[in-house]
Design a protein around this nucleic acid. Structure first.
Length: 416
DNA sequence: AAGGGGCACAACCGCCGCTGC
DNA sequence: TGCAGCGGCGGTTGTGCCCCT
């Protein structure tokens, strides 16, 4: 462990300390105190720089150092303190007798950070991870994708506003992003059922589907139409050669219209007539086929019976709610407070964390009250949400994080 | 049994702020 | 007031160990 023995340009030794050096240092400090660290090495007969001696003493040789595994209480305390103080390791260490800042820093970087990430908590902000904020926007994003698909298929529907959205969305739906769409489907599938298609025997209700897709604010008259588009998008992805593997395919098959149920009735195949039978527009890309929507006139959702089975509420970050009102350093029984994950916070988080990176003193988090995420109050429009996503220069990292997330059981745990 | 990857952690590096001259 | 020295701090690196394949 440590580094190979080496020396700097002044001939001073660097690297791991030998037992002899340790003994010399301890012996000297016991008899004389450390005094000036700069002068100490010479006086103690050490061929080290003062800084190296100081670090060795404070991080390793000090007699009051408690070594060994951190207890669960200590870990909780560190998390709580970090929520309040940020990366002020020395201050945090001051609250843990016998522990050094270096030790705590190492523990944080190798252990606690991952632990929080696994819990879906951003270790920097101690808020629900921003990718989860993105996830809270996914219904809107998917709805936007559906609209895009709609516009692609119905140029006559375009007006100046939608044309702009269309071009944005068309770009967003280019092949490289088909994989993203597939991933979105996958995630939504997980969010929607809390299980994988291969193991799920449940069928989503129409209400659940609509909420899942963020369509609750859309006129009920148009909802089946949009849903149809959604399924068409899935099919389109298939047709484009972006194989919709298990989960996504399972998702689509789960939405078999013959099994979609409203809260009180089972819809008939007339809602999605193009699902069961081979659909002519499956034979070509979504792009300009304006002969679709055979179902539009006949498909009517029972809008009077629109029970709001809000699937997204299942991933409401209120699940993270902490009951304490302040993250007191002395309260180590609870995990640190978490704050709003409302989509509005997203960019704010990005900015503040960016500022925090410049100014460590800003890393400390105020003890905000928790506001549960509310997809309905998300980014003002679906197009804006989509635009935000695809315009954001950090999009790639979001996707990476989402992929990480999707590959873990975190979401399932959240839903649970 | 061997190799590779991840983890743990000691140690180094560079910057910042305080203090004394 | 400005500057230099020093201590302290946070970030990063490098290496041995351990576990898994």
């Amino acid at each position: 462990m440590g580094r190979p023995p080496s020396s700097d340009e002044n001939g001073l030794k660097k690297g791991p300390w030998t037992p002899e050096e340790d003994e010399k240092l301890v012996d000297y400090i016991r008899r004389h105190g450390h005094g000036s660290w700069r002068a100490l090495p010479k006086l103690a007969g050490l061929n080290r720089c003062g800084k190296s001696c100081r670090l060795r003493w404070t991080n390793y040789l000090r007699p009051d150092i408690k070594r060994g595994k951190f207890s669960e209480e200590e870990e909780k305390l560190i998390i709580n303190l970090h929520a309040v103080l940020g990366n002020k390791w020395s201050t945090i260490a001051g609250h843990l007798p016998g522990r050094t800042d270096n030790e705590i820093k190492n523990l944080w970087n190798t252990h606690l950070k991952k632990k929080l990430l696994q819990m879906g908590i951003d270790p920097v902000t101690h808020r629900p991870r921003t990718d989860l904020n993105i996830l809270s926007n996914l219904p809107q994003l998917i709805a936007a994708a559906n609209f895009a698909s709609t516009f692609l298929s119905h140029p006559t529907m375009w007006d100046t506003t939608t044309t702009a959205a269309h071009s944005t969305l068309t770009a967003a739906l280019q092949p490289p992003d088909a994989a993203k769409i597939q991933l979105l489907h996958h995630i939504l599938q997980v969010l929607g059922t809390g299980t994988t298609p291969s193991t799920s025997t449940s069928t989503p209700t129409m209400e659940a589907m609509l909420n899942l897709l963020g369509l609750s604010s859309i006129s009920p008259d148009h909802q089946p139409y949009i849903l149809d588009e959604y399924l068409r998008l899935v099919e389109h992805s298939r047709m484009q050669g972006y194989s919709i593997n298990g989960p996504v395919g399972g998702f689509a098959s789960q939405i078999n219209p013959t099994h979609i149920q409203t809260s009180s009735t089972t819809t008939t195949t007339s809602t999605f007539p193009n699902i069961e039978a081979p659909r002519h527009h499956h034979q070509q890309p979504v792009s300009m086929d304006n002969s679709t929507y055979p179902s539009i006139s006949s498909s009517k959702l029972d809008s009077t019976n629109h029970k709001n089975t809000n699937i997204m509420s299942m991933v409401d970050i209120s699940g993270y709610k902490s009951t304490n009102s302040s993250a007191s350093p002395t309260n180590c029984d609870q995990l640190p407070l978490l704050v709003s994950a409302s989509p509005d916070d997203h960019h704010h988080d990005m900015i503040s964390s960016s500022v925090a990176n410049k100014n460590p003193s800003n890393k400390a988090n105020p003890n905000h009250d928790i506001i549960s995420s509310n997809p309905s109050s998300a980014t003002s429009t679906t197009f804006e949400a989509w635009g935000d996503l695809i315009d954001d220069e950090t999009t790639d990292s979001y996707w990476k994080d989402i992929m990480d997330l999707a590959s873990s059981q975190t979401l399932v745990n959240l839903v649970d």
